[in-house]
Each structure stands twice: as structure tokens, then as C-alpha cells.
Design a binder for these strands. Sequence first.
DNA 1: TCAAAAGATACATCAATAATGCACTTTATA
DNA 2: TATAAAGTGCATTATTGATGTATCTTTTGA
Lengths: 156, 156
Amino acid sequence: MQLKKYTDYGLRILMYLGSVQNSELPDKRATIKEICETFKLSANHVNKVVHHLGRLKLIETRRGKHGGFLLAKAPDEIRLDYVIRELEGDEAWIDCHNPYCVALPACELNSIVGRGKELFYEHLSRYTLKDLLKNSAQLQQIFLTAGQSPALNRSA
Amino acid sequence: MQLKKYTDYGLRILMYLGSVQNSELPDKRATIKEICETFKLSANHVNKVVHHLGRLKLIETRRGKHGGFLLAKAPDEIRLDYVIRELEGDEAWIDCHNPYCVALPACELNSIVGRGKELFYEHLSRYTLKDLLKNSAQLQQIFLTAGQSPALNRSA
DNA sequence: TCAAAAGATACATCAATAATGCACTTTATA
DNA sequence: TATAAAGTGCATTATTGATGTATCTTTTGA
């Protein structure tokens, strides 16, 4: 029971963009390369997440030389429940059909767990990217430093 | 993002036991074989879950001829949050360390998601096995029928 | 006292899917 | 028109949950 790294990476990317755009360079585009160097991630995976965020209209991507991407909305318009639901996929947290459960017609479990899932997302719906940028100055500092020393900063 | 089948099976087993003990045979022991026939599950997997439920003192297992297992507590004393937390494992829903995230020292995400997770379990804490046995009569009927025709009742 | 029936345990294998990698295409622009 | 960027599809690897096989231990009734 854990969010996918895919989802996690998506949130990191949004935080990075929000942080950069909060700074002296509000119109600066970020690139996949830059994100990968900052977070030490695989370019392919980030590529796919960026593309997904673009399809969701959360970021504006631009191809070609001097391309890149930036937030398409203000940070306080990007709700965490939406981002996580979309990136994570919105399947039921319990699967009564695979393998099929004979108790299904009389079972209360699925609705109880389902309600719990909704409470999780309701909680997330009270937060936006802006809340993730609370320590904006510190984040900027971190991302600046990490970007400057692309070979270091590894860990398990 | 889904509960493990392991956890799901554990809950089904408890429902089965609760249902049987609600009926004419409150002291009847169930066996792994019987559960497998009812739900069409792998004996090995069920074996492990039963063992786990025993270690948690939720059921009393007994080896040997005429062995088997039954609930060790009243259904209204078996809380769903406990069962699911234990069977599922209580790891964080987001992993900041693998791969390590540079933003960690300034990041709010983990605490927001962590709180959402706790809300999920708080919700579950308001339910017990007794709530899963709401349709007890129907469950008994289902389990009886399923047990009688062990070769049928398949589905994808 | 022994055979059979049950759970306990350890290890091996299979399957699903998330994560990652590679190659190539398309687009923008200097 | 070369280059730098994202877009796309397919292949591969890694993780881990799910399942299988074998054997051990315990209990009890014949």
C-alpha cells in the first residue's frame, strides 16, 4: 500500500516548477534534463510524467530548442487530490472480482474501504501545490544547490 | 494503490468464521481446506494468512486431527483498522528515501499524505467485524451453498 | 503405538506491474 | 539547417505479491 513513484515524481516536478516560478525567474522554463539532475531521476520516467502533467493541463510544455515547461496554473489552483488521483489512477482499493468473492452480494467491506478512500482524497482536496511551497525559500536553495552539483548528492 | 490480496483474504476468513459462529454451530472449527473450497483460493496462501491471524490472537488455531480454528474474540471486538494495518503492513504511503528526495528537509508532502493515511485508518477504526456481518443470514446461505458445490462458482 | 488429519515452516517459482532504458520521431528556433 | 527540446513506442529489468512443493510438528482416535 504505497503511492507509485510515478505519482511521487509528478509531485516533485510540480514542486520544482512552483519553487522556480516563485523566484526571480517566474517565466523560466524547466527541462526534463534539469529535473533529472536535480532529483537524480531517470530521464525516461520523468519524460512520461511530464507528458502526463501536460495532458492534464497542469503544465504547459513546449518542444524544440529553448523548449521546456512551466506551470499552467497558479499553485493555489492545483489541488493535491486531483494530481494524485490522476497520476495514481483511481481504481478501487479492494478488488472483489479478481479473484471473485462469493460473499460479494452480502458484503459490506468494499463500501467501508471505499468510503475510507474517499476520506483520504477529501483530506488531500484541502491542500494545493501552494501548501507544498510553504518553505519556498528553502526549497529554492535546495534546488539551486542540487542543480549545481549534478554528480554528487546520492543516497540510498 | 490497492490493498493486498493477502489482507483481503484475511478479512474474508474472518467474515467466514464470524458467519459460521453466528449460526447453529457456534463452536465449530473451520479448516483451511474448507475456506479454500468456499472462496476458491490457494491453500498455501490461506495457510499463511490463517497463521498470521493466529499470531495476532484474532483466531485460535489448533493442530492435528479435528484441528482447525475459530474466532478468539467477539466480532465486535475485532476492529477493522487493526486487522488491515497488521495484515497490510504499516509502511508510509510515500517513500522519501528510495530514491532519496533532495526536497525532503523542506517538504510538506509526506506529512499531508501521512495525515490522509491516518484519516483512512481512523475511519476503519469505527468498524468491527460485527459490521461486516450485518447480512449474516445471507452470508451463511452463501457460504453453505459455496461449500456444497466446491467445483463450481468460478469467475474472472 | 501408529496412522491420519490438521496447522507450521521453509524454500522455490510464477506472475503482475512498476520502473527504467533505448531508439526514433516531431517540433521549434537560432 | 543543425540543434535542442519534448513526444512516442517498444523492450528490458526489478520488485514484490501470489502461488506451489515439500517437509515438519502436533493432536487424536483407532
